[in-house]
Write a protein that binds this DNA or RNA. Structure first.
Lengths: 353, 353
DNA sequence: AATACCACCGGTGATCGA
DNA sequence: TCGATCACCGGTGGTATT
């Protein structure tokens, strides 16, 4: 069933679908008026996972199965929002003394939060699928005919060069991906800092790109196949994949990290800059890994001098002497999931083993 | 005239005062309904400078003249907000087809912005006055009797140790404070970066503490006297003082920087961390100045692991080898302007010449 | 079940330069 | 006068830990 509702045959189908979904407790808008969260005024909650799982339950935007894979993130997002508002209208009419749903409850900060997470999830899903096309080519020597992505120039098929692109959850310590040996080096470093009541931890990047070890540990098999959709099952797979590959990565196999934002303000630009500096320091200096690349993907560059800010030099490179390097290697205006994933795909041949 | 209105004799006084202020075009709430800002929905603007200039036109919170200098930032701020809401009620009643002022226009993000700036201004003003007490002691050997601050332990009066504490404006390049010679070193560094299309600039700290050069350039005379109030004239002096001392500071006289926040979120913690790292790198490595201290002053620690995040080690100190140091040397819960200024005052004897 | 935390982003008042 | 930029902060859905 297509759940970008304007693609559905009629509005009645939406009404009955949304009513059933609400009754099943999996609606995309939840009524918190009788169960308020302590210290908050929220009267209706956007059930983010349900919303995404519903709107994208039949294809991953930009990928195989998408009727028009060249649409923008903004389009997919506004479609999901329209779905949500329609569902809430169906499920929360005025009822005696109780007022009907009003959309102001799901605008403003609430929608900003959901939209930001959705952008990150859509990008991570498209990148997963792009990596799956790449990995199939690496395994078979043939680029998958059904892929919406093109084979990157100068790509040579070898199982040694398979790649996993993984979304990391909030609060994740990305060093958990490292092999025990590499992690021990990191932990020794941390302990020397903790002796002085200090630390140097990452506020984890949104998405990381990893060289799949060879031979391939079992947890990586999933990256050989694309996600067919973002139905609840696959959404859960996308967001939990990192747990399947912990303890398997050498520092040099940490190829790139991506910070993802729909928009920014000058003050909000600096979190990725700090993160990029710390990540490069830890991977480069502590773990002696090769230099990883840090990307920032942003949908909208207005409201701050984004390009200028991200020309900041990496402190690590400055103090090493020799060649300077930027902290953020590449800034990309990510407007369409397909183009964004293709852009990352095109960089994969550049990485040395 | 006391303009924390609950201290005023009666509500009528407020009404006539606010009506006159509005007619004079200096009201604390402006009607933008007939002159909308392009691309914004704002119907009423909080005239931040007018609001502060009015509410604090007879004393600086926490300082001489404050009837109760131990009140909290939260108190002064809520008083200013009450003034604002009352003034808007007086000046924007329903008028024919035009609806009355509604307070939702000045809640949410608008008030967040104003409250944040007000917090920074109140702290900067209290610190200015604490430094003035210090400087009078340095000049005369006697701690000013009228000061609300106490003489720090182990302080020794010498004109060599006078201090200026200055608020910096948005977007300011704090290296403009440096002497031409020091600035040339910095500019040479920048040019070598620019040759590679990079830079390493500061998103300026909110407040800086500087050793006043000896002999004292003319622009510093203002720091010998406290600000009597935050009337528009003195508010302007506070926010423009930095322009009077440009080109006078050696790197080693850059004693400390303070980042000021009322509250935070985990992502918003990282801008000061990046800034602290860059500032320490530039002052320490590029300018060979002594090590400056970076403070974070925050009113409310809830909503993020603030203490943990600010135990991050300085990348500069890690790469130098030798002793580690934190990027943020000191995190302080700044709830009261008087206590906050006293806390900074108590650190002044620690700085070597 | 409750709590703390995480990282999401958009609406802002003022300034500065065209 | 206008547009671009700056740095302000609070409400949020989900997760992990009590």
């Amino acid at each position: 069933m297509p759940l970008l509702f304007p693609d559905a045959p009629d509005a009645g189908a939406q009404s009955s679908h949304c009513a059933a979904c609400h009754l099943a407790g999996t609606g995309c808008v939840l009524d918190l008026r009788d169960a308020p969260v302590r210290g908050r005024q929220t009267s209706f909650r956007i059930a983010q996972d349900n919303l995404i799982g519903c709107a994208f339950d039949s294809f991953v935007p930009g990928c195989e199965g998408d009727p028009d894979p060249d649409r923008t993130f903004a389009f997919y997002r506004s479609q999901a929002k329209a779905n949500m508002l329609a569902a809430a209208g169906v499920n929360f009419p005025a009822n005696g003394a109780r007022a009907a749903f009003v959309s102001t409850d799901v605008q403003g900060p609430a929608w900003g939060k959901v939209a930001g997470d959705m952008y990150e999830i859509l990008e991570a899903a498209a990148l997963w699928n792009a990596a799956a096309s790449w990995n199939q080519f690496m395994a078979t020597g043939a680029w998958p005919a059904s892929s919406t992505f093109e084979q990157p120039a100068r790509s040579i098929a070898t199982p040694m060069r398979r790649i996993a692109i993984v979304q990391l959850p909030r609060g994740y310590d990305s060093t958990r991906l490292l092999t025990p040996a590499a992690r021990a080096t990191y932990e020794a470093f941390q302990q020397s800092l903790e002796a002085h009541e200090m630390q140097l931890r990452l506020s984890s990047p949104d998405i990381v790109g990893l060289r799949i070890p060879d031979p391939m540990p079992a947890g990586y098999a999933q990256f050989m196949q694309p996600l067919a959709d973002l139905s609840p099952f696959n959404l859960h797979r996308l967001q939990r994949a990192h747990a399947d590959i912990e303890g398997t990565i050498e520092g040099r196999n940490f190829l790139f990290a991506i910070a993802v934002k729909t928009s920014t303000r000058s003050d909000r630009l600096y979190q990725p800059l700090f993160e990029a500096n710390v990540l490069k320091f830890i991977i480069g200096f502590v773990l002696r890994g090769s230099v990883l690349r840090f990307h920032v993907h942003m949908e909208d560059f207005e409201g701050a001098n984004v390009r200028g800010a991200y020309t900041a030099a990496s402190l690590y490179s400055l103090m090493l002497g020799g060649d300077f390097a930027r902290a953020v290697d590449h800034l990309y205006k990510a407007e369409r999931p397909r183009d964004t994933a293709q852009a990352i795909l095109n960089t994969l041949p550049e990485y040395a083993i």
